[in-house]
Amino acid sequence: MNKHMLKSIKAEAIKQHKSVYHSSLMYFSMLIWPVLHLFSSYYSYKPFEGSAASELVAKWVGEDMIFAFILFGYISFIFFKCFVQSAWRFSFERISGTLELIYLTPASRLGVMLGNALASLFESAWMFTVFCVGAIVLFTDLNISSIFMPIVAVFSLVIPSICWGIFMNSLFMFSRDTGIFFTLFQTPMELFGGAKIPFPAFPIWAKLIGGFFPLTWSASIVRKIFMHGAIFADIKAELILLTLICIGLFLLTLLLLRRGESYARKTGNMALF
């Protein structure tokens, strides 16, 4: 990583942040939004109580843990969702013509994707904090083994979600039909990533799909750390899988960026939308 790349990362993160949070109303909505989400996840769980699905969850996580299960699943999901949304926002640069101008410069393409993803880290980190405070207030019997483990939890959310974010960004750069990717990745991630339904409860085919989403393993780590007082050794398998997935995503991103640019230079599709 050279100085030019660092500069591109920083410039893109600042630009993206400024163009999203251009008014104080946005900051205000950031205060309201997570609170609304928290309530909606709480109340969407309410009618769930006593249903067949809740029994399924209860079977895997225990009766008294259902709400915590849903809450931490949601926290993890929100983290990833922010990045997908930011990628989707980034794809609008094609329409505004600024994408072409970025490609006109000699800036590191990976740096720009990374900077763009980092800008939404700000949003996710904020949501995460609000949710965690909410979790502590609503759900007092958190079971954490040591102060060190929540830091591991944060890292196992931040790094995979950034990898997911740059992967999404480069995918959206490659193609104009971003809507397809959005439905292709967002919905299955929500469904199979174990955010709502415990991953072990899935049939094998769903596990195969869900296993590819880093969210699945991040959520599992977060839950184990906050709900079950896991120590490092308890989450080793997930961490290894997560690392492999991140490396895979990163390599895929590099490939997509290179292929995407040469494809755009052939077809001129960067100016089309």
Binding site: S8, K10, A11, K15, S19, H22, T105, P106, A107
Partner: peptide
């Protein structure tokens, strides 16, 4: 949504 100066700063940095 950026100012003229912010726009120029952004592109200037991409040019290192």
């Amino acid at each position: 949504r950026l100012t003229a100066r912010e726009n120029l700063e952004y592109f200037g940095k991409l040019y290192n």
